Computed example of a mutant assay.
Amino acid sequence: MSGGASTSRGIVYQGIVCVLNSLVNEEWVKVVVEPKVEKKDSDKVDISWTLLDSKGNQSSKATQVKTTINQFTIGNIGSWLDELIEKTPNCDHYELSLIGNLAPSAYNLAHKINNQERFTESSEIKWSKLETYFGKISVVSYPINDDLFFRAIVTYLTELGEKHKLNLKFGDYSFASKALIGDVQVLSTKSVEVSREEYEKQIVHWLSNIRQEESKWKEAADKSYKHIVNRAYELCNLESWKEWYTPLIMQTFKIKPNQITNFHIFFDEIRSFNWPNYPYKNDYLEKSILRFKDSLEIIIEAFSNKCIYEPYSKMNVVPKHFYLPGVSQEEEEIRAKDYYNWIKEYQGLYIELSKSANLFADTVREKLDPTFLQFNGKLGGFTYSNDEINKIFNT
Score class of each variant (00 low, 15 high):
F273R: 04
P370R: 06
A103S: 04
W275D: 13
L324P: 01
Y346R: 06
S22M: 11
V317P: 09
P89V: 03
F119Y: 03
E159G: 00
T50C: 01
K226S: 10
N394K: 08
I343L: 13
K391Y: 09
S177Q: 05
L98A: 00
Y384N: 01
K129V: 15
N282W: 03
V184F: 05
S188C: 10
E27G: 04
S328G: 07
E286I: 13
L235A: 08
I255R: 02
Q71H: 10
I69T: 03
L98G: 02
I308P: 00
N341Y: 15
V65C: 06
T88C: 13
K36Y: 08
P311I: 11
K287G: 01
R365Q: 13
W244P: 02
E200I: 09
Q374K: 04
D183N: 10
S22G: 09
E198W: 12
A232P: 04
G171N: 08
S215I: 12
S97P: 10
E286L: 01
E297V: 03
L102Q: 03
F393K: 03
R151L: 03
E117N: 03
G10L: 11
K87D: 15
R118M: 01
E332K: 15
A5T: 10
R211G: 02
H111A: 09
K36E: 14
D146H: 13
T120P: 00
Y384T: 05
P325N: 06
F175N: 00
K306V: 02
E310C: 06
L130Q: 04
D147Q: 01
V37I: 13
F263P: 00
Y199T: 06
K30Q: 02
E310R: 10
E243T: 15
K126Y: 08
T371V: 04
L285M: 09
S208D: 00
F360W: 10
L349E: 06
N167S: 09
N90C: 12
E193G: 01
A5I: 12
D283C: 05
E95M: 08
D43A: 09
I300K: 00
T50S: 09
E26R: 00
E121G: 07
Q251R: 10
R118L: 09
G348E: 13
L98Y: 02
E131A: 03
A103W: 01
Q58Y: 12
C307G: 10
E34C: 00
